[in-house]
Amino acid sequence: MEVIAQLLITFIATVAFGIIFSVPKRALLIGGAIGMVTWGVLQGGLYFGASSVFSTAVASLTAAAAAHFLARRIRIPVTTLAIPGILPLVPGSRAYFTMLSFVEGDYLRGLEFGVETMLRAGAIAAGLVFALAIFSYGKGIGHRYEPNR
């Protein structure tokens, strides 16, 4: 019951975020659905005992992969789906507690929260990058040498 309520709220909040970023109307509900799946994957990872950073990375990969796949289907830029998709992962509460600890003078706790915030943000970026790598497969031309020449 709790899980269903959370998923429903994630859907509504993600669609609302789509309106804030002025996502085209035909992509609004799809973005919300991706956000819902992202939250589900994140909670699933935490439920099965994975660390929060790893769960975030997997959820971000899921969101970005779904965004790439669906954006090709309905022919819109990937960002219009990817941005609402990864929003449920934004480490807002960690960032807030980082700042709160620093304001209260508890620097050690602040650093602890800060490191976790940075790691989670990095995990989101990693998921985006992996999805990009998967979906641009076959377009590489080599970065160091030119083997095809």
Binding site: T10, A13, V15, A16, F17
Partner: peptide, 12 residues
């Protein structure tokens, strides 16, 4: 929408 998003994330 900003209000809805904010309240939704405060719950999450």
């Amino acid at each position: 929408a900003a209000g809805v998003a904010g309240s939704g994330f405060s719950y999450l």
